[in-house]
Nucleic acid binder design. Structure first.
Length: 585
RNA sequence: CGGGAUGUAGCGCAGCUUGGUUAGCGCGCCUGCUUUGGGAGCAGGAGGCCCCCGGUUCGAAUCCGGGCAUCCCGACCA
């Protein structure tokens, strides 16, 4: 490959686009890799397309290596497939929907479990056919409420999605492990810095699930990792351990009601307690906050009122409750109307002491363990109760992880301190199980002549998102620094401007190309400064400058990442560059 | 869906408060000459439904009303 910049369809921008916030968005637009076509929808220009294909090639390579077979399904899909698994409605507004001339409903595929399951059902029917893994790399569509950050979160994006089909759970585990290994090799080859974190499966259904997160402060996903061991998890899936702070319950005085007018919030309560001369100082962590929730089981229309207790210095993490602790039920906060319907619950002064008596389940965070002592509501407006001991003064129906995780919480594996960081979800692997094969009755006939229900795994990689994630991780104030595996070229040869220098640059470029390297030659009529600036913006790992040294028979070799420069003889530069790049592997 | 902001040339912006005749600046683009190791200089050009609709006015980019769109924060989100 040899691209001449004089004819390349490329226009770089001097200034950041006004709508860009994150580095990848700014640099990909400024470097002429992408252009916005609609909100969350981008055109990939020649250099961007090359980078995108480079990422796809690595993905394809490693997928093929684990025996997955590539195919291509339509992005335009009829409603019926998604109807039978409930996702036509479950996906809600996230689905791009359209109608054909006959009034039939279609959608643009957000992911393809249904179609793959049906495809396999249609083609395979014997146990001898399994296991099989299929994949595609394709545009996916999701009508995000708020697309943002350019390529990082678009409404149209490129995704590799693969699906494994196995006869039994062991097979599924093997397919899952094979994908996990492939993903590790893919992200290593792409030069991405990433973490593998435990995840919850969310709307996809299924059990075991891990996310691959590219570490980046601009990432949208928050994850927790241990500073002492390998444990890492998405904040919804994280498990923590709680230091044992329970006192000897027999040493705690009997429950004491306190007159605490106008203290509906934790802060107002703490201030009041400390003004009451109770012989000690209280903090928010000494109080017990009780949050009333409406919990609806799947398929039910009636909700159950549930109270969740957490230490007063913590907030309830609704997402964690809904997606992990109470899944698959849906969870909502009590609203004004609900309070009116339940006068037995005194808003702002709820205490768990009375809940058992009125038939409401009490779920407590692990920090609220039996034997711990709290100040909490007395179920009368303006009153609280002190010396309330869990297990003595109120019952706990279940312990659930309910609080927002904080840095410094303790690791459930080794007890080390946890930290919280942000990342970009670049891959996600699921052991789906039989949700889709049950829906479509995908069976294989076993050796005994009896049907076996197939079990599925589903595995995604955000190919276009990876391009942006790589830029997020690899840039400086001058531009992008591409890892070689994805760079738009191996070498950027710059003829600084004079005709003879450009001519030599083209000759060097041609010789490099003949050695199988991918080359960009800047043969434009432009001043050296312009060319240097563009080269740094575009981020090709190695560049060769043919300029003033030409009279002495030398050219300059530059390394984009480290910034090193060296003068080398003109007649050995091709050899040297080829060797160096070969040495990098 | 809630909060905030913005729509003026391909891109980035000024002008609007206080209405006035050819709507400006920088980058980019075109032509010529000069220049060529760090975003060149000089000269000359091309390019505008000032988001849309309506109103006020002799006159609207500017004032008023109503839409629409986009961006940011939040909610939501494999």
């Amino acid at each position: 490959m040899l691209l001449r910049m004089s004819t390349l369809f490329l226009r770089t921008l001097r200034e950041d686009p006004a709508d860009a916030e994150v580095p990848s968005h700014k640099l990909l637009v400024r470097g002429g890799f992408v252009r916005r076509a609609a909100p969350g929808v981008y055109s990939w220009l020649p250099l961007g397309k090359i980078v995108l294909e480079n990422v796809a090639r690595v993905v394809r390579d490693e997928m093929n290596a684990i025996g997955a077979q590539e195919l291509l399904l339509p992005a335009l899909l009829p409603r019926e497939y998604y109807e039978s698994t409930g996702r036509w409605t479950d996906y809600g507004d996230l689905l791009f929907r359209l109608t054909d001339r006959k009034g039939a409903d279609y959608l643009l595929g957000p992911t393809h479990e249904e179609l793959f399951a049906l495809l396999v059902k249609g083609e395979y029917s014997s146990y001898k056919d399994f296991p099989v893994t299929l994949y595609q790399i394709q545009e996916k569509y999701r009508d995000e409420a708020r697309p943002r950050a350019g390529i990082l979160r678009g409404r149209e994006f490129h995704m590799k999605d693969s699906y494994s089909f196995d006869l039994d759970d062991d097979g599924l585990r093997r397919s899952y492990a094979a994908h996990r290994g492939a993903y590790i090799r893919i992200f290593d080859r792409l030069g991405v810095d990433y973490r593998i974190v435990s995840a919850v499966s969310g709307a996809m259904g299924g059990s075991a699930s891990e996310e691959f997160l590219a570490t980046a402060p601009t990432g949208e996903d928050t994850y927790v990792s241990c500073t002492n061991c390998d444990y890492a998890a998405n904040t919804e899936a994280v498990r923590t351990v709680v230091p044992d702070t329970a006192a000897d319950p027999s040493a705690v005085p009997a429950l004491l009601e306190l007159d605490t007018p106008d203290t509906p919030t934790i802060q107002s309560l703490v201030d009041r307690l400390n003004a009451m001369d109770l012989g000690r100082t209280y903090t928010a962590a000494d109080t017990l906050k009780n949050v009333v929730l409406k919990v609806t089981q799947p398929g039910e229309t009636k909700y159950e009122v549930v109270v969740v207790g957490v230490p007063g210095d913590r907030d309830v993490d609704l997402k964690r409750l809904a997606e992990s602790s109470l899944a698959p039920a849906s969870v909502e906060l009590f609203e004004a109307d609900d309070w009116a319907e339940h006068p037995e619950l005194v808003r702002g002064y709820i205490g768990p002491q009375v809940l058992a008596g009125i038939g409401i389940r009490y779920l407590a965070d692990p920090r609220v363990r039996p034997g711990t002592e709290w100040v909490t509501g007395a179920n009368r407006r303006g009153f609280h109760a002190a010396h309330v001991v869990a297990g003595r003064d109120f019952a706990i129906d279940a312990q659930v992880e309910a609080v927002e995780v904080r840095a410094g919480d303790l690791c459930s594996v080794c007890g080390g301190e946890l930290r919280i960081d942000r990342g970009i979800e670049i891959g996600h692997i699921f052991q789906l199980g039989r949700k889709y094969t049950d829906a479509f009755e995908v069976d294989a006939l076993g050796p005994d002549g009896k049907p076996v229900r197939i079990t599925m795994g589903s595995y995604g990689i955000g190919v276009s998102r990876l391009v942006a994630a790589i830029v997020e991780q690899s840039h400086d104030d001058r531009g992008i620094i591409w890892p070689r595996a994805v760079a738009p070229a191996d070498v950027h040869v710059i003829g600084t401007g004079k005709a003879d220098q450009v001519e030599v640059a083209l000759r060097i470029g041609e010789e490099l190309r003949a050695r199988g390297l991918r080359v960009i030659v800047d043969d434009r009529k432009a001043s050296p400064g312009v060319k240097f600036t563009d080269a740094e913006l575009l981020g090709v790992p190695t560049s060769v400058v043919v300029g003033r040294g030409l009279a002495d028979g030398v050219v300059e070799l530059r390394d984009r990442a480290g910034g090193e420069r060296s003068e080398v003889p003109l007649d050995s530069v091709v050899e040297l560059v080829a060797e160096r790049i070969a040495a990098e592997g």
